[in-house]
Amino acid sequence: MSAPRFALGATVRIAERTPPVHHRVPSYAKGQVGRIVRVCHEHGLPEAYIRGDGRPFQRLYRVRLDQKALWRDYAGAAGDTLDIEIFEPWLEPAE
């Protein structure tokens, strides 16, 4: 177990990349900036399972995104949000 790189409340950017293997970051979330709302446990990284057992396990986070920033034509209220699970290698610090 390694210490989480990001703390609760940290602002992060979800990486914008498309590895040519199975991964679990939906395209709508790539490149988006959000904040950490839950530091989860370490789990096998989906793209690492193609080599075997997914190790080394990676820290998982819940990241909160603002709907108005996510969808240009979002028709809901300004405060609406979306929470998504993202592994640490997909996150970078952001302003």
């Binding site: 939906p26 446990h41 998982l60 949000t81 929470d83 699970e85």
Partner: peptide, 13 residues
């Protein structure tokens, strides 16, 4: 004034 929060279940939760 009721916030809607969508939770996308993408990994181990």
């Amino acid at each position: 004034d009721v916030e809607v929060r969508v939770h996308d279940s993408t990994a181990e939760l």
